[in-house]
Structures are given as C-alpha cells and as structure tokens.
Nucleic acid binder design. Structure first.
Lengths: 232, 232
DNA sequence: CGTGATCTTGAGGGAATTCAATGTCGGTGG
DNA sequence: CCACCGACATTGAATTCCCTCAAGATCACG
C-alpha cells in the first residue's frame, strides 16, 4: 500500500504537496467515497497547519478526510478571514468543478486525506452510473451544508455557537463529549464572530449550565435541550 | 408546444402546482440546461408571489428560469427569514439531490420556469456522459455561489449592498442600469440586514454618488469603481 | 520553569437593530 | 381624471449587541 507522507519539517513551511499531480495516484487504501466510489486515489498525510490546496489553484482533485480535521478558509485583502467549513473523517471537500478553488484548504491537525483526481472519477462515472450519481450527491450535500451555514450567520452569537456545537457533536461524536480540533479563532472565523465573542459566549453557555468544559478543547453538552432552545 | 400556466387567480392562493408530478412533463420549449441538456421537461408559468416548491417537500425536479425572477427562502420558527438566493433567466435552482428541499422557492415576479424531473436527467446521464458532467457542474456552481454569499455575510452593510448591486448588474444587465425585481425586504433578508438598514445604505451610496435611483426599483450604477471600493 | 500562543475577561465605543413616524408609488374606484 | 388606499420605502431616535482595545489567565512546549 503506497502512502505518501509529508515530512515533519513541512509543518511550518506553508504549502506542502498541494499539487499531487506530479505523483502517480496509484490505486490504494481508500475505503469508499460517499458510498460506491472506492479504490481510487492516493492517501496523503499532512502536518498541522499545512496547506492542502490554495485559493486560486485549479481544482483538479477531490479530497476525503480519513483522519484528523481540515478547514477551508478565505482571506480578504483587508485581512478579514472566513472559514468556509470544517471537514472531519468521512467528509469530502474540494468539490468545486472546473475553474479554480475559491478557498484554501488547510490541515487543522495532523491528518490523512484520500486524494482523487477529478478526471479519474469522471472516467469511472462513464462506466458506472452510480458513480456519476454519487458525484452529484456529494456536491449536493455541500450545497445543503452551505445553506445551513447561511442560516447560522443571521442568528445572534449564542445561537451560532449553540448550533455549531450541536452540529459538531452530531457529526463527530457518539456521546455528549466533543473534542474541538479547531481553535477559538477558527470557530470565530467560521461563525462570523470575533474570538472574544466566541469565548464570552462559551462562558455564557457554561454559566447557564448548557455545557461544561472538561478542558479548553473538550466540551461536554450537559443540557442538549437548553442548547437546542437557542437553535430555532 | 404544451405550456402549463397557472390561472391568474392562483396568485394569492399560496401554493400552486408546486408538485408538477401529476402532469406529464412532455418534451417542450426548453432551450438548454447549463449547456448540453436540452429538450426535456415542461414550461410552467407562475404568478407573482406563488410558491414553486415548499420547504420539506421531496426534491424531485430541477427548475430553470426562462423569464421573470425567483427567490428561495427559509422562515425560522421565530419568524426570522433568510433569502437563500435570487434566480434570474438562465439560472437553475432546486439542485439539492435526494432528500427534501431545505428552502421554499417563490416567484418574485410573474415568471416562466422550465421544470425537469431528476429521474429524467439521471436517465439521460446514463446515455450521455456530458449530461452527467453538466449535472455536477450545475451543483458546483451553486456551491460557488453559496461560498461567495458566505463572504458577503461577514461584511458590513455598505459592503454587502454594494456587492449585491454589482453582482446583480453583472448577471442581469448589459449596461449600468439595473431593474430590481425584488423588494427591499427581499434584499434585506438576502443580505442578513433589516429593511431599514438596506434603505439607509442605498441612500448613503446615493449620497456619495456611487449610484442613482431613477425610480425605487431602478438603480443606475453611476460610479462602479466607487462601489468596488466597498468590495474587498 | 520560563516563554509564547491561546484563551478569557473587562470597559468603552460603534454599527446595525428596533420602534415609530413620515413619505412615495401604483392601482382602483368614484 | 384624480383622489384615495394600501403596500412599500425612507428617515429619525433610542437601544442593543457585538467589536475593539487592553489586560490578565491558562495551556502547551522546549
């Protein structure tokens, strides 16, 4: 099983292997992409903070998170930042067809990602119609995720944070305890708030008994219904 | 050429023909859907304010605007509203695969819409791979549109309105004069602002000479570069 | 155990909202 | 034809929520 890994020292060097086109993506690990697509692409590892692809680069690959966590973000010229989404194991990102990526993708934690060339999928889609359908379904899921995120951004701070925590718990953890792979800053940029407001809001949710912090990055959802009360 | 039209009296009756499944969508008018998909589906007419599909209904059709304008919106239980997007002639909406619609679609003005069953497209995609690709491309465009919209919602009021006007001008009109099919309320709900703020901001943009109002619903972009200065 | 990054908390200010009133436009009927 | 009506739009004043700036606390790491 061929596995491409970025050397440790790449961690703080910005871009690392974001254009795997120079490698032959021979068939390997990949379990399934969405459902019926399997056994295509290469597994790659990225260190914490390393860029997976950059804004403006041609979108030639899909990426499926195998382990760790990834964020997509865009930085405006005046420095404001927006995190488009967080991707956890099982999630697929980089779905934008044609053209170039509008966002940059970065590893939040060390992570493994299955990388699949668009053209490989399209070629397979011609043989297997289920693959073509899968492709549509994946983009479609991303549309839904973005639609839901739009709704978040019209709410107030407690509602945004509560919805974020509930969403994360639903995706990432079986129980009521969630490990946050991302920083407060990341959360803030995702929710369209400042770090201070996120921090204050988390404190507030704690003060009303909705959540409990066993550590800074580990949150226990003490009272889900209280949280849901914020989420109309 | 078969053409299904909603009777005038349907205008203020809420839902009207939102589930065209009872009609045989025989091949008709449709020019092209995206590029290569053509001659499928039925052309339908909707009166101003009429619902095209409702939130929660199964997503079984694509819709391509032939004339007029459409908005998608979602109403939260507490009454807050979010307009997901405005769709003008040539635009495709209702791309969410599987599942149900998360948003409601309504005709802003009287409009004609080409309605195409998902299954019809999927069937064609099996014969023509270009159609499958087209399908992906359409969802992908929607992803891009939503990504861009996310960025809007972290900006301040003048930036949001300026970006909105520039975007609309780019899509809808060859010159510098744009006709707004939607109300200030619609714009506000799209931009995550209140009507009052939108109104104030338009007045402000007018006061600095960026735009001119020949009527309430017709805006002339006097100084595009001034507008773009708001759009980082 | 220090050092820097990350997180929390506080105080003050500003942008958008809320509430309220006035102004404008298009349509309808006298 | 024009006056009236209701829907839509604009403007004003007060308030609220979040941001900004600043300081202190906590955590991870060498």
């Amino acid at each position: 099983m061929l596995e491409l890994t970025t050397p440790e020292r790449a961690v703080n060097q910005g871009r690392a292997l974001s254009r795997p086109s120079t490698r032959k993506p021979s068939a390997t690990a990949g379990r399934e992409l969405g459902g019926s697509i399997e056994c295509m692409g290469a597994s790659m590892s990225f260190g914490r903070g390393v860029e997976i692809y950059g804004e403006g680069e041609p979108a030639e690959y899909f990426y499926k998170v195998l382990s760790g966590a990834v964020r997509t973000r865009k930085v405006l010229i005046d420095g404001r930042r927006q995190v488009g989404g967080f991707y956890l194991p099982g999630d697929v990102f980089g779905l934008e067809a044609g053209e170039n990526h509008a966002f940059t993708a970065e590893a939040i934690t060390a992570c493994k990602v299955l990388v699949i060339k668009h053209s490989a999928i399209v070629a397979r889609a011609k043989l297997d119609h289920a693959v073509a359908f899968e492709l549509w379904l994946l983009s479609s899921n991303e549309v839904r995720r973005l639609q839901a995120h739009l709704l978040l951004l019209i709410k107030n701070a407690p509602e945004r944070v509560a919805a974020f925590l509930l969403g994360l718990a639903e995706r990432a953890s079986p129980g009521d305890s969630i490990e946050l792979p991302m920083s407060r800053q990341d959360i803030a940029e995702h929710l369209g708030l400042t770090v201070e407001t996120v921090s204050r809001t988390i404190s507030y949710l704690q003060s009303v008994g909705a959540i409990e912090l066993s550590s800074v990055r580990r949150i226990v959802l003490q009272d889900r219904s209280a949280l849901k009360r914020f989420d109309p």
